[in-house]
Design a protein around this nucleic acid. Sequence first.
DNA 1: TAGATTGTTAATCGATTAACAATC
DNA 2: TAGATTGTTAATCGATTAACAATC
Lengths: 224, 224
Amino acid sequence: MQNPEIPLPSLRRLLIYYRHFKTASQAGLDYISSIELAWAADTTPEQVRKDFSFLPSQGRSRVGYPTQKFLAIIEDYLDLVNDKEAVLVGAGNLGQALALYPGFKQYGLRIVVLFDNDPDKIGTRVGDLRILPVENLVNLVDRMMIRIGIITTPAYVAQKVADSMVRAGIKAIWNFSPARPKVPEDVLVRNMDLSSDLIVLSHYIQNYSARFSTGRIPEEKNYT
Amino acid sequence: MQNPEIPLPSLRRLLIYYRHFKTASQAGLDYISSIELAWAADTTPEQVRKDFSFLPSQGRSRVGYPTQKFLAIIEDYLDLVNDKEAVLVGAGNLGQALALYPGFKQYGLRIVVLFDNDPDKIGTRVGDLRILPVENLVNLVDRMMIRIGIITTPAYVAQKVADSMVRAGIKAIWNFSPARPKVPEDVLVRNMDLSSDLIVLSHYIQNYSARFSTGRIPEEKNYT
DNA sequence: TAGATTGTTAATCGATTAACAATC
DNA sequence: TAGATTGTTAATCGATTAACAATC
């Protein structure tokens, strides 16, 4: 276990820094400053330095953070190298889109099989992934010792699916349904509730005119 | 504008409570307690009561919160009733899945048109939505006075797309690409960075055994 | 050196949790 | 009434931001 517990927001930012190191590497840059990283990640240089304080490596004063080394360090810290297998339940539009999403394998997530309960779908393929009947889940996941499950079913079956996942030994669930499945405390559930995120946009739009159109003109800014 | 600024997490929880009121309503329940709502939303009763303190209505001691009234209150507060039109750019797998996602219109989001730059896609339909060339975006969005934009393109065009959206008068951007587009400060960008969320799961799995089994300590690494 | 940038400790801020009086 | 539940103020917690010494 990582020694001083890293905050989740820092964890997520590390990946954003990682991406910027990657492009910098392609551009042949040997060092990147916290200032530049902050710009790329929409945060402050202080935050970047704080985040890096959880890593077992340091930058160089007056120079910045060495690109190649930090690529390796973050890769290792976030365990981007080792493949982690996952199963996905619910091969609808969203499920299929995630199964085909190119970004995941890049960071070590490998979806190995899809499950559904629709007889018309079972036996077909999405990319090179097979769709199997959801009854096979417990057995297969258990046998393959898969630890990550993705739920893209309608809400009303999400709890049942989560139960099967837990029974099969899955320890981390990425839940894209609006349900909030209950699981034992040693199992992590990340709820990616699209609609509840949408609310944030909606609320902003609703209040937009009151916020910005009274009085002053917004200041001119330079974003480069 | 809402008077005491409501925290974003509260805003999101309000939608979760709303869903629970909805099912309770179908079950014919007239009142729901903060205890039950807390259970449904994976939070505490205190938090529920705190969240409701931002609403212009109260519960009843010893009884709970009236289902019908709170459905109406939350609907109003989150502006779930009025349709808010949106455009989506990037009609790939994820873009199409979002365009067809049934959950959105339920909460007032109506995607009205898709844009793409692939000549093979342009002119085709996704459900009953047309795919138009991205060159038409500024004009059409401006004319229709659309305020919400969704980006499901690859990272390398995200900034360009965001620029067009801003130029067209869009005020809230839901960005599903891994890029971090820069926009004027009066425009809201919500980054739904799937991969960076994945990292949280991955990190949990990586540290799982150390956390919950009395077993062995992960080996120390040496970088230099 | 002077100046820029890192690393770390302390202060602040915002959200959650706790405490408890008010209510029915 | 007694007991359950709400509403609100205060305390706590965690993350961000600020300050500043150390470094090259």
